[in-house]
């Protein structure tokens, strides 16, 4: 079966700098794939290419076998590619309820609905409750987002992406900056994401990578350095040399 997300020879140059260098990458359906690499390896550029923030210099991006290389960002979302951000990108003045409600009704085409009051459709409300339960946001649904604890904001960050029912979910360092006390809830929620969502995880935290991913790709200087199962990559001496160092055996 075709991979749910695939890039072929993806290149992005900024002037003389090659930020993404001939990356051919496959994310299998239902996969839990981690993308790791040292700082400046080009992980963020790669995500921006996938989501349509940047246009590649050359190469192709295929979502479920369809070429989306030049599709607008919002179209890719509707085709099933959603992302979270490394630094929270939320709506500070809105409540989690409104935020999730917005994402759900956008997916159902509700954004063009300018006459019905938000929340008057049963299926939207049911789904909001569903998502809020899954992401442990029920108790704070009507709080202002800017007043939420950081861990809850991180959960909301993922919940919003999840609300657009993605086939592929790109998680950009989901646990970054979350204090220890709130960490467990977040990791458990990420681990419990349903299997029909394929996940690409960009992460620095090796504990999270090893516990979550079934495959790992290593990006170095914009190019794919190696790829394999967690076993293979963590035992690869070359990987240890360029990236992992001693941290694997810590």
């Amino acid at each position: 079966m075709a991979p749910v997300l695939e890039t072929r020879g993806l290149v992005k140059r900024f002037g003389g700098l090659t930020a993404t260098n001939d990356v051919s990458f496959r994310l299998e359906r239902g996969g839990r794939h981690a993308l790791i690499g040292p700082n400046g390896a080009g992980k963020t550029t790669f995500i921006n290419l996938l989501t349509g923030v940047l246009t590649p210099t050359s190469g192709q991006i295929l979502l479920e076998g369809k070429d989306v290389t030049h599709s607008r960002a919002e179209l890719r979302v509707r085709r099933g590619l959603a992302r979270t951000f490394q630094i929270n990108q939320l709506f500070p003045a809105m409540t989690p309820l409104e935020t999730i409600g917005l994402a759900v009704s956008e997916r159902m085409g509700g954004g063009r609905d300018w006459w019905r009051v938000t929340g008057s459709k049963r299926e939207i409300v049911d789904e909001i409750v569903d998502i809020a339960r899954r992401f442990h946001l029920m108790d704070i649904l009507d709080e202002r987002t800017s007043n939420l604890a950081y861990g809850k904001q991180r959960l909301l960050e993922i919940a919003v992406a999840f609300a657009s029912r993605p086939k592929v979910l790109l998680l950009d360092e989901p646990a970054a900056g979350v204090p220890e006390a709130e960490r467990h809830e977040l990791l458990a929620t990420v681990a419990a994401l349903p299997r029909d969502v394929s996940v690409l995880l960009i992460e620095h935290d090796m504990d999270l990578v090893f516990s979550f991913a079934d495959r790992i790709s290593v990006l170095v200087n914009g190019a794919l350095f190696t790829e394999g199962t967690v076993e293979e990559v963590s035992n690869d001496p070359k990987v240890k040399a360029v990236y992992l160092g001693e941290s694997v055996y810590e």
Partner: peptide, 23 residues
């Protein structure tokens, strides 16, 4: 309406609004 809500989201954070799929 959901349309009005989407406007407020654009005002608050256009980057995220786009990432939700809002044109």
């Amino acid at each position: 309406s959901p349309y009005g809500l989407s406007l407020r989201s654009i005002r608050d954070n256009p980057l995220r609004a786009r990432a939700i799929g809002i044109p």
